[in-house]
Amino acid sequence: MTEHGSIIYLEGVTVDYDGFKALNNLNFIVNHRELRVVIGPNGAGKTTLLDVISGKTKPAAGRVIFGKDRDLMGMREYEITQLGIGRKFQAPSIYGNLSVWENLDLSLSRPSKGIFATLRGISTAAEREEIDRTLETIGLQEQVRKRAGSLSHGQKQWLEIGMVILQDPELLLVDEPVAGMTDEETEQTGRLLQSLAEKHAIIVIEHDMEFVRQIARIVTVLHEGTVICEGTVEKVQADDRVREIYLGRQKVAHG
C-alpha cells in the first residue's frame, strides 16, 4: 500500500533488456519536498530508474505510484509530464532551432497542451512574468532572443533546468546536472536545487561525491538494479557493502 506522504513509490520494479536486468525487483520511495540523491557504479540502473518513473521505459513487472494513488504504469511520457513530473537529461536536451524564450514558453505548464489549444494560445501577462522570473534564476536574460542551439554547453544546461522549473513539477528528475560544469557553476546548481527542494521533490543522479555531499540529505545507493543502502551521506559512506562495490571500486580505479 502507498505510504502516506510519498510522492513516488516503486515496488518490485524489474526492467529486462534481453536478459540483462537493468532493474531487479527494485523498491524505492521518495517523500514530498525531499531532495534525494541516487548514486551507484556504472550500469547500476540509475538512469533506468528515471526512465521508469518518467514513462520512457516500461518495466516488465512491478508498480509505480505517483502521489497518493496515481498508477503510472502504462501511461505515456507526456501524460506523466502533465501530471507533474519533470525531467532534466544528462546531455542537455533543448530545442536548438528555437530562441531561448520560445524554449521556455513551450515548457511552461499550461492547462492544455493539445493541438487546438496551442494553435490559438497566446501567452498571458502572468505567463510572461513567470518566464522572466525563471530567466533571472537561470541567468539567461541577455540571451533571451538567441537561438538556443548557439548557447554554450553550460548555458544549455541552465536553459534545460529553467525549462523543467517552468513545468512546475511536483517531482523533478535530474540526471547528472553538473557534468561538464565549472566549480562555480556546480555550486550554483547545488544552491538552485536546494532552493527548489523547498517546494518540489527532487531525485538527483550524481557521480560527483563532492556535489553529493553539498546537496544531499538522504542518499540511495543502487547496485545491479537494486537498492543496497539508503541513508545520510555519512551512513552510506560508512557502509561496508557500499565501500566494497562503489567506493572501493573507485579507489581501485584511481589507484
Partner: peptide, 26 residues
C-alpha cells in the same frame, strides 16, 4: 502559433517535446 513552434521542437528533439508535456504523435 505555439503549435508551429512545437513542430520545430519535434524536429529538434522529440524526446524533449514528450517531456515538456506535448504529445508529438498528435
Amino acid at each position: 502559433s505555439r503549435a508551429g513552434r512545437v513542430l520545430i521542437a519535434i524536429r529538434d528533439s522529440e524526446q524533449r517535446v514528450l517531456f515538456s508535456g506535448y504529445s508529438p504523435a498528435t
